[in-house]
Design a binder for these strands. Sequence first.
DNA 1: TTCATTTTTTAACTAAGGTGAACGATTTTA
DNA 2: TAAAATCGTTCACCTTAGTTAAAAAATGAA
Lengths: 193, 193
Amino acid sequence: MQDILFDFISKYVSLTDDEKNAIISLDIFRSVKKGTILLEEGQKTKDSYFVLKGCIRIYYVLDSEEKTTAFYTEMDALTPHCVISKTPSQYYISCLEDTILTVSNTDMEAEINSKFPRFETLCRIFSEELLAKQQIDFDAFKTSSPEQRYLDLLQKRPDLIQRVPQHQLASFLGIKPQSLSRLRARILEKSKE
Amino acid sequence: MQDILFDFISKYVSLTDDEKNAIISLDIFRSVKKGTILLEEGQKTKDSYFVLKGCIRIYYVLDSEEKTTAFYTEMDALTPHCVISKTPSQYYISCLEDTILTVSNTDMEAEINSKFPRFETLCRIFSEELLAKQQIDFDAFKTSSPEQRYLDLLQKRPDLIQRVPQHQLASFLGIKPQSLSRLRARILEKSKE
DNA sequence: TTCATTTTTTAACTAAGGTGAACGATTTTA
DNA sequence: TAAAATCGTTCACCTTAGTTAAAAAATGAA
């Protein structure tokens, strides 16, 4: 299971056995049941997550309605905004499936970073990559219609459409569940012609 | 002018005179005229920007229409996606106003990072902050209507609405210029009642 | 200043998403 | 297992954005 993490890291830097052992000794691997809430609105935390297997999601409760804005699956890393801003969380994080992930807090990261400078380089590069990728995703969202967004998702993350409930997918796409349902029917109708 | 940059950096780490001089000797300060195109679609570059004064924007050309997706003003940093992904750029970057900025390339950053490890820490923290902030912005975009987005912008970035052409603001808000115009009229109508 | 260009607004019409309600189907839970 | 809650779909109606076109306003260049 740890190998998933190290395989991932090896894309960026090659770790020595010393470094790997330092990470393992942190005891960061966790197994969590479907439905578990990792973070609640209003809470403060220093914990970041890296998904090894399964799926977690971010959702807000606005006007007593759930709005899912992000999904994290295998090899996705999530540092909640409240960890960075040191303010109470504006959103919930919960497990959509039984999930295996790593949980690491700011202090542990600081320690590893100072012991192994290459780990800091890894974090910097990784975070720069995520930022650039997310920028592209945001741009694509702004410049396309809900229907186009759905079709794009179908191409790029077909797995998500299978494993995630429609109403969560809808708010992820920025629309209401009824609209997603209608939009899907519309696409099906078009493809018949 | 350099002081703007160092004031900004001092929020994250305090630099020694040695470090400041190393940065100054890189000769990264540039003054560019309104309308200058810093990066074109299809180009490759290693250059990142930090805006000291003025405003630059990212725009795509889709179906021969300009779609502006981001603005960068005083104290904003921009590393184009193509710098990270090492692929040709999907978008243009141009100056909306006469602008003073720093231009630094990947190689220079790598050099500074290896000479001054604290600079790497600065970059990591800065990039993690940007990522978290952008996530929140993206979430807000997904969970609100064009009208709400406009009202939010009016609160949070009133300067942008003054200094940026409406049609660029429109695509930044994910709508057409005519819709923004109509939406503004609608808001004005409501406020009269 | 004048002319050309760009930007913003307005309007009429079309298309698409939001709302509220209803209906099975499925899942959860007691 | 039965009852309750959740989920996905459909419908009718409303609101809002997209489209096309035109005109007014603002901007820039000769």
